[in-house]
């Protein structure tokens, strides 16, 4: 399961979203994130959620699969949520419970739910991108979007190549890590118990062989790339060409509608605490 960490989690089916241009998808994700941060009340977040649901349906990736990506940062969400819940500062709070400097207020509850909701939408949305875009088009998209930087001699092609190779090697190195861990366990290494320092020390005999092997692999890969006539960006062509299609136009229109909707909902339905006035 570790293999699915953020990248390398491409879900290979054909769908409307899969067939969109990766450059468009990257820009859409940025716009989507903007929408999330613009949203200032629950109605606006609900609009973003609606958009997310449409996007997931159009991607034909099962919801469970998209949710899995949230599971991986669940800890982070819970952690920030708890901090937020008890240490929310503000004036004129509707206090529910108080003990020394820890205060639990309705505002904190709302704020926490809001924050967790945002994080959730953020992760779900970005994982739709990585689930529907294979690493090569993804890096091609990034490369293409960064092309203007070539102008200031920024090594865009090399950066994109490094990224796609890194993505490609994640599963390989994960397998390797598991093998080394198993090998060290067989030699009596203990990764499960002991204090922080002891555990950190136990990582060293895993990290060192992993590094050694990674360097070996890098050397082999360099040879293999040379042998396959690699000689940098010049004179190189691309098999997969990126083209915008009507799908990207549809996506752009939907996102424009989303942002407009979020702004309107913000303006007309007040801030996130407005619902408190209705109840308290």
């Amino acid at each position: 399961m570790l293999n699915d960490v953020i990248f390398g989690q491409y879900y290979p089916v054909r769908s409307f979203v899969h067939n969109m241009d990766p450059r468009a998808k990257i820009l859409f994700v940025i716009a989507y994130i903007v929408a999330i941060f613009l949203a200032d009340n629950f109605y606006a977040l609900a609009a973003v959620t609606l958009f997310l649901i449409v996007a997931v349906l159009a991607s034909r990736v099962p919801f469970g699969r998209v949710l899995r990506s949230v599971k991986m940062i669940l800890f982070l969400i819970i952690f920030t949520a708890i901090l937020n819940l008890f240490f929310y500062a503000g004036n004129e709070l509707h206090v529910i419970w108080q003990w020394k400097f820890i205060t639990l207020s309705w505002e904190a509850v709302i704020n926490t739910v809001f924050l967790a909701f945002r994080l959730f939408l953020l992760v779900m949305g970005t994982s739709v991108l990585t689930l529907t875009t294979a690493p090569v088009p993804l890096t091609d998209g990034i490369e293409s979007l960064l092309t203007p930087l070539k102008w200031i001699k920024f090594p865009v092609h090399e950066l994109a190549l490094i990224m796609s190779i890194a993505l490609r090697f994640i599963p390989t190195l994960m397998d390797e890590t598991n093998r080394i861990v198993a090998a060290q366990k067989a030699r009596g290494a203990n990764f499960e118990t002991g204090g922080l320092i002891k555990r950190a020390k136990a990582v060293v005999p895993v990290l060192i062989p992993l590094l050694v092997s990674a360097f070996r692999r890098a050397e082999d890969l360099g040879d293999a790339m040379d042998a396959r006539c690699y000689s940098g960006a010049k004179g190189r062509t691309k098999y997969k060409k990126l083209v915008f299609t009507w799908r990207d136009l549809v996506g752009a229109l939907l996102l424009a509608a989303l942002i407009a909707g979020v702004v309107l909902l913000n303006v007309y339905l007040g801030g996130k605490f407005a619902i408190l006035d209705a109840f308290l």
Partner: peptide, 14 residues
């Protein structure tokens, strides 16, 4: 040239 370890000569994920 084809090398020994197939994992170390693949550059792409597809």
């Amino acid at each position: 040239m084809v090398f020994q370890n197939p994992d170390n000569q693949t550059v792409a994920s597809i």
